[in-house]
C-alpha cells in the first residue's frame, strides 16, 4: 500500500513541484500518473524511491513512513520496489542474464537460487534466447524487457515504471504494457508515470492526473484527458 499524506515538494523555496497532495494506492492496484511535462510526475516518482525528500507531509509504503527512514535503510526500501526507467538503465558490461542476476546478488541470494530463478523470469518476459547477449546487442523493447525482468526477479510488492515506453515505438510499447499488466495480474501493485495517451485510454485503469503540482483528477477507470 502506498499513501501520500499532504505531501509538498519545493525546490529553491519558490519552485513548487508538488503542492499538498494526498492519495492512496491499494495493494494490487494499477495506477497511471499522467500530466504534462513539469506537472510533478518525476518528483512523485523520486519521492517514492526516496531519491528526494518531501518538503512537508509524509509518505507511507507498506505501513512504513519512509520520510523517517535513515540513510542506510534506503537500499532496503528500494528492494521492496521494482523500478523501470525510460532509459532502461542496464549495466552495459553485463549480459542479460548477469543484469537480472545482479539484482539477486545484491540481496545476497544463493547462487543456486539465482540459477533457478533468472531463467524463469527471462522466459516470463520472452527473452530466454537472449540470455548471453549484451544490452547493446538488443533492441529498445528487448532492453526494457530485461529491465522489467530485473525489476520483478526479487518479487517486490510494488512495481514503479517511470515513462517505460517513452523511448519505444507504439507496437513495442504495447508489448511492454501488456507485460506490466501481466505482472499486475500476479498481484504486484503498479505505479506507471506516462505520456502515452493511447495506452492510458485503452487500459481503463485508475488515472491520477497532475497539473502544476496539484492532483486535478483521480478516476477509477480514467482516460488520459489531455490533447497532446
Amino acid at each position: 500500500m502506498i499513501k501520500f499524506i499532504n505531501v509538498s515538494k519545493r525546490y529553491n523555496k519558490d519552485i513548487i513541484a508538488l503542492s499538498n497532495i494526498s492519495f492512496e494506492i491499494e495493494n494490487g492496484e494499477f495506477v497511471f500518473i499522467v500530466g504534462p511535462s513539469g506537472a510533478g510526475k518525476s518528483t512523485l516518482i523520486k519521492l517514492l524511491l526516496k531519491e528526494e525528500e518531501p518538503t512537508s507531509g509524509s509518505i507511507v509504503i507498506n505501513k512504513k513512513d519512509i520520510t523517517k527512514l535513515k540513510k542506510r535503510e534506503i537500499p532496503y526500501l528500494r528492494r521492496s520496489m521494482g523500478v523501470v526507467f525510460q532509459d532502461f538503465r542496464l549495466l552495459p558490461n553485463k549480459t542479460v542474464f548477469e543484469n537480472v542476476a545482479f539484482a539477486m546478488e545484491i540481496v545476497g541470494a544463493h547462487p543456486k537460487e539465482i540459477r533457478r530463478k533468472v531463467p524463469m523470469v527471462l522466459s516470463l518476459v520472452g527473452l530466454s534466447d537472449k540470455a548471453e547477449k549484451y544490452p547493446r546487442q538488443l533492441s529498445g523493447g528487448e532492453q526494457q524487457r530485461v529491465s522489467l525482468a530485473r525489476a520483478i526477479v526479487n518479487e517486490p510488492s510494488i512495481l514503479i515504471a517511470d515513462e517505460p515506453t517513452g523511448n519505444l515505438d507504439p507496437d513495442t510499447s504495447w508489448e511492454i504494457v501488456k507485460l506490466i499488466s501481466e505482472i499486475n495480474k500476479r498481484g504486484t501493485t503498479v505505479v506507471m508515470a506516462t505520456h502515452a495517451k493511447d495506452i492510458v485510454d485503452a487500459m481503463k485503469k485508475r488515472v491520477i492526473a497532475l497539473e502544476k503540482g496539484n492532483i486535478v483528477r483521480d478516476e477509477a477507470r480514467g482516460v488520459y484527458g489531455y490533447a497532446l
Binding site: 537500499p75 528500494r78 528492494r79 523500478v83 538503465r89 549495466l91 545484491i106 540481496v107
Partner: peptide, 16 residues
C-alpha cells in the same frame, strides 16, 4: 558513475 547510480536504484547498499 552510471553503473553506481543504477546499483543504488536497485537497492545495493553503499558497502556492496
Amino acid at each position: 558513475r552510471r553503473e553506481i547510480n543504477i546499483m543504488k536504484y536497485i537497492g545495493a547498499t553503499d558497502w556492496f
